[in-house]
Simulated assay, not measured.
Amino acid sequence: MPKTCSDPRRLALHGPTMGTRWSVTCDAAPDTDVQALQTALAAAVQQVDAQMSPWLPGSDLNRLNHAPVGAWVTLPAEILEVLVCALDVCRLSAGAFDPAAGALVDAWGFGAVRDAPDAEAIRTATSAAPVARTPTYEALELDSGMLRARKHAPMHLDLCGIAKGYAVDRMADVLRQNGVPHALVALDGELRAVGGQADGQPWAVAVESPETCRRAVHSVVELQDLAVATSGDYRHYLQVGDARLAHTMDTRRGAPVRNEVASVTVLARQCMHADAWATALLVAGPGEGLALAQRMGLEALWMLRRGNGLVTLGLGRFSSGAPASGA
């Protein structure tokens, strides 16, 4: 049973992971073992990285990537849970979210292989675009009961568009298991609120303005038992001549996403879902993405580059400008 927080203390925990940092702000009972909580949170994030990192040669993701087509690969339950969600969003978004973007990510210089675009690698990766192959959600077979997966076509998986959101969810699980009912978990642009604050107020989270040279707040969203994730073109990109190449790939085009969407913010109960859908809506663009979000009943905020300014477009709680709360 969760501990009561009749006289809670505010804790701020954090640590490195996945090339960035995770953080937890929580209102915990006075007798909470802070070191044990810190260790458990760090272990949860480390497990996700060890299983799903495209950068670690020995990760479970890379074992699957390097396995021959048709060979079953035994996998941990956690990565299978993420793959199930990734393939579901891939199917529902008609490939706007595609976990088999790894070859394109590497070819364009955003992966572990190279730090600049390579024309030959791009040609090779583009030749395997969905128009020329079976969709990822059909070409990757998952057997959750037997904890295994196999590929029916060559593919290089990359879970960077969903794994950080899943890591946030795992940290939320750790907090609940340790009797912490009030917390805000963050990893890059992915956040999840466990309950509200101990005083009954929701957690206030800034939605960042998509500016490359400085960090600025566009608006504030209030979270209670709710997750939020943002995908955009303004933090991770390569400058090639006059062109700025976003790190998010559109596998349908075989190239980095290129549309007027500067960022998309999505609300969901689980951060894994918010993370994946934010990526899907970024790739889909404002027209296709709006129709997709309406069809899926998503709550989302787009910031579009038009002329010299930004235009916002919102659905759900974002449409009225009212603060979002999961209560």
Results as ranks from 00 to 15, higher is better:
M1K: 10
M1R: 07
P2H: 13
K3W: 15
T4F: 06
S6W: 05
L11P: 00
L11W: 07
H14D: 03
G15P: 11
P16A: 08
P16F: 02
M18F: 15
T20Y: 14
W22F: 08
S23V: 06
S23D: 13
V24P: 00
T25W: 12
T25R: 14
D27V: 04
A28P: 02
T32V: 14
T32E: 13
T32K: 14
D33C: 12
D33S: 13
A42K: 00
A43Y: 00
Q46M: 09
Q51P: 04
Q51R: 04
M52W: 11
M52D: 09
S53T: 06
P54Y: 07
P54R: 13
W55L: 14
W55N: 12
R63G: 05
H66F: 05
P68R: 04
G70S: 07
V73M: 03
L75P: 02
L75R: 00
P76I: 14
I79Q: 08
L83S: 11
C85S: 13
D88N: 14
L92W: 10
S93A: 03
A94E: 14
G95L: 07
A103E: 12
W108Q: 06
W108K: 09
G109F: 08
G111A: 07
D115F: 08
I122G: 02
I122H: 02
A125D: 05
P130L: 07
V131S: 11
R133L: 12
R133E: 10
T136K: 03
Y137G: 09
E138Q: 15
L147C: 05
L147S: 03
P154Q: 04
L157M: 09
L159K: 05
C160G: 15
C160W: 06
G161Q: 01
A163H: 07
G165K: 01
G165A: 10
A167F: 07
A167M: 09
V168L: 07
D169E: 05
D169Y: 06
D169C: 03
R170Y: 06
M171I: 00
M171L: 00
R176S: 08
V180F: 09
L187T: 05
E190M: 11
E211M: 15
R214M: 13
A216Q: 15
A216E: 15
S219Y: 14
V220S: 00
V221P: 04
Q224K: 11
D225V: 06
A227M: 13
A229P: 05
G232P: 13
G232K: 00
G232T: 02
Y234E: 09
H236Q: 08
Q239V: 10
G241L: 00
D242Q: 11
H247Q: 07
R253D: 10
P256N: 11
V257L: 05
V257S: 01
N259Y: 02
S263W: 10
T265K: 10
T265C: 15
T265W: 11
V266F: 12
A268M: 01
A268W: 01
Q270E: 15
C271A: 10
A274R: 06
W277V: 01
W277I: 03
W277R: 04
A278V: 06
T279W: 04
A280G: 00
L282R: 05
L282H: 11
L282Q: 04
P286F: 07
E288I: 03
E288R: 10
L290V: 03
A291C: 01
L292G: 15
M296W: 12
G297W: 01
G297T: 06
L298G: 06
W302M: 09
R305A: 10
R306S: 12
G309T: 05
T312E: 13
G316E: 04
F318L: 08
S320Q: 12
A322I: 10
S325V: 11
G326F: 09
